[in-house]
């Protein structure tokens, strides 16, 4: 995976021009919904007319019903909470390690020379390939999931933090030194804010990997969580619950991205690219 793969291109700023046919709604709010709503309508139409078989793909109405029954029994809420807890724990552990390594290697030549080559080598191993080994080490308990998720989020955060620190403007560092900043001040006032846009890119990429890893490890060995719910439903041919799980992944992924964007907008308000 090249570094370029780990960076998102920022979407163009949405225009705020109003269109006359929607007097109260912004074009920016309506346009993103057009495609998903149309697709769902077509899907329901296909299911209702019998064009799409129930055994292949349940109708949106059936998925909604599955949602109600799962939610009413309390299983859905429980599984979402369990998965979210695992995801956050993995993000916290892996993210902290990746962040600290990125900062230290960005600042210290010695540490960089000592560890960067190793990290770059380990990074290229698909972490899901470790599943057999991880099950041997940790069994099928929480440790295995935490280990895999942490490992998955570690590298994008490490790479982007390191990249961000290394690319802090040398002129600003020199300025900081002339004005007598201590090492801590230099980090707090120059290096960290300078690296922050890049760290956020790493965080958003890590959020995607976090869900992916968690779902895969939950499908293989778990007795609760969204991945378990979907996998269990597959065994009983309950396609509606399988699709429900997919919809929830999509919503959770969107939620994580919205939170990351809010954080970006809040901490990077100085940056013209993030100004509203």
């Amino acid at each position: 995976m090249a570094l370029a793969d780990l960076t998102f291109s920022r979407t163009l700023k949405q225009t705020n021009k109003r269109i006359p046919s929607f007097p109260r709604l912004d074009r920016a709010h309506v346009l993103p919904l057009v495609v998903p709503v149309t697709l769902i309508a077509l899907w329901q139409f296909g299911s209702s007319t019998g064009f799409i078989s129930d055994r292949i793909m349940p109708s949106p109405v059936a998925v909604t019903q599955a949602f109600w029954s799962e939610a009413a029994s309390g299983d859905l809420g429980h599984n979402i909470l369990v998965s979210a807890g695992r995801a956050l724990a993995g993000l916290l552990v892996g993210g902290t390690i990746g962040f600290l390594l990125g900062i230290i290697n960005g600042v210290s030549k010695l540490s960089e020379q000592l560890t960067d080559t190793t990290l770059q080598m380990v990074r290229t191993i698909p972490h899901l390939a470790l599943i057999p080994l991880v099950i041997l080490w940790f069994g099928i308990g929480e440790e295995a999931k935490l280990f895999l998720t942490s490992l998955g989020v570690l590298f994008p955060i490490y790479l982007n933090t390191y990249h961000g620190v290394r690319n802090v403007d040398r002129d600003l560092l020199e300025m900081g030194r002339i004005y007598g900043m201590s090492r801590w001040s230099l980090f707090r006032k120059v290096i960290f804010p300078g690296a922050l846009p890049s760290i956020f890119v790493g965080l958003r990429y890590a959020l995607g990997i976090m869900w992916l890893t968690l779902i895969v490890s939950e499908s293989i060995a778990a007795s609760s969580g969204l991945g378990y719910m979907a996998n269990n439903a597959r065994e009983f041919m309950m396609t509606d619950v399988v699709v429900l799980a997919l919809v929830i992944y999509a919503l959770l992924g969107k939620l994580a991205d919205v939170i990351a964007r809010r954080l970006e907008g809040w901490t990077l308000s100085w940056n013209a690219a993030y100004q509203k």
Partner: peptide
Amino acid sequence: FQEPRLLPWFN
């Protein structure tokens, strides 16, 4: 300096 070298994240 020739360039202002201001910290863009500070007002």
